[in-house]
C-alpha cells in the first residue's frame, strides 16, 4: 500500500463522508404545521383567512382555528402568506422563512402570534406525534415469511 495509493484512498473516503453529510442535511425531511388559531389569554387572535403558497403553488386557505401542514426536505422552508386580518381588510402578501432545528421532525407555528411579532418561544413549538398506535394491523406480529417466493405475484413484481 504505497504512499500514493493511501493518499487516493483517503481522498475517496473523505469524498464519501462529505456526500453522506450533505445528504443528511439536504435530505432531512421535516413537516411544518401552520395554525390560524388564537391563543387564550393573549392578545393574539386568529385572522380571518390566510392563503398558503409554497413553491408558487397555492396549498390551502386557513380559516380561523384551522391547521395545515407542508412537508419539505432541508433545514429551512420559505412560504408566502396571503393575510386577511379581518373580513373587510385587503389581502396583504408576506414571504416568510422558518428554520427547523435538525433533531425535530416537525414544528407547529401559530401564525397570528408570529405575524403579531411575538417571540419565538410563543409562536413555535415542537410537533410531537401522539404516537398513535394504530391497532388496525396488529396482526403484523406474525412475519410473512414467504421462503419460496411463491406468493411472488402479490406486490406488483
Amino acid at each position: 500500500m504505497n504512499k500514493r495509493r493511501l493518499f487516493f484512498i483517503a481522498g475517496t473516503l473523505l469524498a464519501v463522508v462529505a456526500i453522506c453529510v450533505l445528504c443528511f442535511i439536504i435530505g432531512r425531511g421535516h413537516t411544518l404545521y401552520l395554525d390560524n388559531k388564537s391563543i387564550e389569554n393573549t392578545s393574539y387572535s386568529s385572522y380571518n383567512a390566510i392563503d398558503l403558497v409554497y413553491k408558487g403553488e397555492k396549498v390551502t386557505t386557513l380559516a380561523a382555528r384551522e391547521r395545515s401542514s407542508i412537508s419539505f426536505t432541508g433545514q429551512s422552508v420559505t412560504i408566502t402568506l396571503g393575510i386577511k386580518k379581518s373580513k373587510s381588510s385587503s389581502v396583504e402578501e408576506k414571504t416568510v422563512t422558518f428554520k427547523v432545528p435538525y433533531n425535530m421532525d416537525g414544528i407547529v407555528i401559530n401564525l397570528p402570534a408570529y405575524l403579531d411579532g411575538a417571540d419565538e418561544s410563543v409562536y413555535m413549538s415542537e410537533f410531537v406525534s401522539m404516537a398513535i398506535v394504530d391497532e388496525t394491523n396488529v396482526d403484523d406480529e406474525v412475519p410473512v415469511t414467504d421462503e419460496f417466493a411463491i406468493e411472488g405475484a402479490e406486490e406488483e413484481q
Partner: peptide, 15 residues
Amino acid sequence: DWQIWGIPAIVLACI
C-alpha cells in the same frame, strides 16, 4: 428511520 427523503435518501441507502 432517520427521516431522510428523496434522492439523498437513495444515495445514502446505497452507501
